[in-house]
Nucleic acid binder design. Sequence first.
DNA 1: TTTTATTGATTGATCAGTCAATCAACATTA
DNA 2: TAATGTTGATTGACTGATCAATCAATAAAA
Lengths: 195, 195
Amino acid sequence: MPKVGMEPMRRKALVDAALRVIGDHGSLSVTMSEIAKQAGVSPALAHHYFGSKEQLLIETIRSLLKQLRDDAVTALKAARTPREKLSAVIRVSFHADQFAPQTIAAWLAFYAEAQRSEETRRFLVIYARRLRSNLVANLKPLCPADVAEHIAEGVAAMIDGLYIRQSLGSTRVGAEASIALTEDYVTIQLREAAR
Amino acid sequence: MPKVGMEPMRRKALVDAALRVIGDHGSLSVTMSEIAKQAGVSPALAHHYFGSKEQLLIETIRSLLKQLRDDAVTALKAARTPREKLSAVIRVSFHADQFAPQTIAAWLAFYAEAQRSEETRRFLVIYARRLRSNLVANLKPLCPADVAEHIAEGVAAMIDGLYIRQSLGSTRVGAEASIALTEDYVTIQLREAAR
DNA sequence: TTTTATTGATTGATCAGTCAATCAACATTA
DNA sequence: TAATGTTGATTGACTGATCAATCAATAAAA
C-alpha cells in the first residue's frame, strides 16, 4: 500500500480545513472543493473519507465542541473554590481561541445550521446544557438552588449574547470587557442573593 | 391580467413571502422559486421587480428592521418615566411577533449572512446601535453616564443571548421568563449603582 | 397603439457525489 | 535478491441536479 495510516491525518486535516474555511467564509455554504484545497487534497478524497459534506461538517462541529470541553476541564481543574470555578468557566468562553473572529463566525454558522440539521442542533444543545450545568453546580454552594438556576440562565444568555454581538464587529466590547461584564453580573447577583 | 399599479403590492407580497420562507427554512439558502411560489407569482417576476436575489433579501431585512423600529416607537411613546421606557424597550424585544420561532430563525440567518454581506451587516449594526442608544438614553437619568453605558451593554447582550438560546428550542426560558431575567438585571444593577 | 404585467422556456454556472484508473508501499515467492 | 501480486491512498474526469438570471412572447389596460 501507499503510506499506510494516512486516514487519521487526512481526517484531521480536512476537519481543520473545514473550520478555517467556514470561519473565513462566515457560512456553511462552502464547497467541498474549497475545503479539500485548503487541506491540500482532492475533493474526491474528502468524499472518500467522510462520505458526504454533511458528515464532514458534523465532524467539524464535534471537534469545535471537543476543544471547548477540553479547555473547560483544564480550567476547572486548576480552580479551587466554587467562585473560582465560575470565573474559570467564564474565562474559557472568552478565551482567545474561542473569541477569534473566525471561530465566532463558525459558531454562528452552526447555530444557523441547527435550524435545519437535527444532528447539529443536538450538539449545540449539549454545549448549552454543559455550560448551564457547570454554572449551576458551582453556584449552588453560594446561594439557594432556585437562585442558582436563575443566575445560570442569565450568565449563559450574557455569554452567548456577547458572542453574537462580537460577530458583528461593531461593538467596542472586547474579550476583557466581556469577561468583566459577565463577572460583574455574577458578583452582583450573588451579593443580592446573600441579603 | 395585469392591472396597472401592481408593483407596490407585488413587492410587499414578495418581501413577506421571503420572510416566511426564510423563517420556515431557517436559512437564507432559499430559492427564488420558493419565494415566488409562496407569493403566488412566477420566479421571473421576482427578478423583474428586484433585479437580483440579493436585493430582495436586503429589502426583506429592511422590512424586518422597520417593523421592530415601529413597535419600539409606539411602545416608547406609551411609556412615561425613564424606568418605564426601559421596560418598554425590553418588552418590545420579546414581543410575540419578534419571539416567534420563524422570526428568530430569520434573524439568526441574517446575522450569519452579515459575515459576508456588507449591506446586511450595516443593517444589523444599525439595529444594535439603536437598541444601545434607547437604553443609554433612558438609563442616564437614573445613574452616572459611564454606569449607564455599562448596563446598556449588559442588557443588550442579554437580550441577544436570550434570542439565540431561544433559537435552539432547548431552553425552558420563554418570553415571560426572558423579560423577567432582563428586568431583574436592570433593577439590580440600578440598585447597585444607587449605593 | 403603446405601455405595463406576467410567464414559460432556456441558459450558464456551480456543486455534491461517483467511478474507473493510477500510484506507491509492502509481502510473498521464486 | 529480484520479480510480482496485493491493497490502501489518491485523483481527474464525469454526471445529474439545482438555481439565478435572461429573454422572447403574450395578455391586458391605457
